[in-house]
C-alpha cells in the first residue's frame, strides 16, 4: 500500500529516529512510503491550549497536503486523535463548510502506526529486541483512538523481548501538552506516581505510541539518572537481528 507519512512536527524536530524507524518498518512490511515535505504541524498545541483561531490555517494546510493520500500514517496517537476528534469542530469554528466536508472525507484515512498495522492483520513484524520493556498506554492511544491492546500485541510478537506489565498503566503520566508547563506542580505530582510504577517493573525501556508522553517520562528518568530509557514503539518494531 502507498502510505503517506505524517511525521508530526514534534517527531520531525526532536525525535527523527522514530520517523526513520517508521519508514524502515513500513518498507520492511512491503509498503511504499511517501513523505510530503510541505507538511508542518497538525495544530494540536494550539487547539488544546485554546488558540483555535490560530489553528484554522494549520487544519487547512493538513487537508491540502494530504487530501489525495490513500492512507496517512503517523507515529503519534495524540496528533491522529486531534485530526479525528477535533478537526471537524475547527472547520465549524472557521465557518467553512467546504473545509468541514474535506475534513470528514480525510479523517478516517488518518491512522496511528500500530492502528494501521493491526488493522491490516499484522502482529509479527519480524522484529528482534532482546530487552525487558514496559508499555505505557498513552491517554490518547487508549481513550481517544481506543487502540486497546493492539500495540501490546505487536510488542509481544517481537522476538527476544520481555514485556512487563506496568502497575496502574492506564493512569495519565501528567504531560497534557501545555498542562505540563501551566500546571507544572500537578503535572509533576502525576509524573512522580508514573515514575514509581516504571521503577516497579525493573524494565530497561518504557515504550509508548507517543513521543510527547515519553519525553515527559523520559525527561524525569534522565534527570534522576534512573537508568531506564524511553523508546517509541516504532523504534522497537523496526529493530531486527
Amino acid at each position: 500500500m502507498q502510505v503517506s507519512l505524517f511525521i508530526t512536527c514534534f517527531n520531525d524536530t526532536l525525535f527523527p529516529r522514530s520517523g526513520q524507524a517508521t519508514v524502515e518498518l513500513l518498507e520492511r512490511l512491503g509498503h511504499q512510503v511517501v513523505f510530503r515535505p510541505e507538511q508542518t504541524c497538525c495544530g494540536q498545541m494550539h487547539v488544546n491550549t485554546g488558540y483555535q483561531r490560530e489553528a484554522v490555517p494549520l487544519v487547512r494546510r493538513f487537508v491540502e497536503v494530504f487530501h489525495d493520500a490513500e492512507v496517512v500514517v503517523a507515529p503519534s496517537a495524540s496528533c491522529v486523535g486531534l485530526v479525528r476528534d477535533f478537526y471537524g469542530r475547527i472547520a465549524e469554528l472557521a465557518d467553512d463548510s467546504a473545509l468541514a466536508r474535506e475534513v470528514a472525507v480525510l479523517q478516517s484515512r488518518v491512522l496511528e502506526l500500530t492502528e494501521f498495522l493491526t488493522k491490516l492483520g499484522v502482529e509479527d513484524v519480524g522484529a528482534y529486541f532482546p530487552h525487558r520493556v514496559t508499555y505505557h498506554p498513552t491517554c490518547h492511544s487508549l481513550r481517544v483512538l481506543h487502540l486497546g491492546d493492539a500495540p501490546l500485541r505487536l510488542l509481544r510478537a517481537v522476538r527476544g523481548i520481555e514485556v512487563v506489565p506496568m502497575p496502574d498503566a492506564e493512569q495519565c503520566c501528567g504531560f497534557g501538552g501545555t498542562f505540563a508547563v501551566k500546571n507544572a506542580d500537578t503535572s509533576m505530582a502525576m509524573l512522580g506516581d508514573k515514575l514509581r510504577a516504571v521503577a516497579a517493573t525493573r524494565a530497561e525501556y518504557v515504550v509508548a505510541a507517543d513521543n510527547s508522553c515519553l519525553m515527559h517520562i523520559g525527561g524525569a528518568l534522565h534527570r534522576q539518572r534512573a537508568g531506564v530509557r524511553t523508546l517509541h514503539i516504532a523504534e522497537v518494531l523496526a529493530r531486527t537481528e
Binding site: 520531525d12 527523527p16 507544572a184 525527561g219
Partner: peptide, 25 residues
C-alpha cells in the same frame, strides 16, 4: 521563563543535529 516549569523536574531532549525531513532529503 514559562518553560522553566518543565525543567523544574524534567530534562528536555536537545534538538538533534538532523531533523527527519533533512534525513529524508
Amino acid at each position: 521563563g514559562m518553560l522553566g516549569g518543565w525543567t523544574a523536574m524534567r530534562d528536555m531532549p536537545a534538538v538533534p543535529q538532523e531533523s527527519f525531513r533533512e534525513w529524508w532529503a
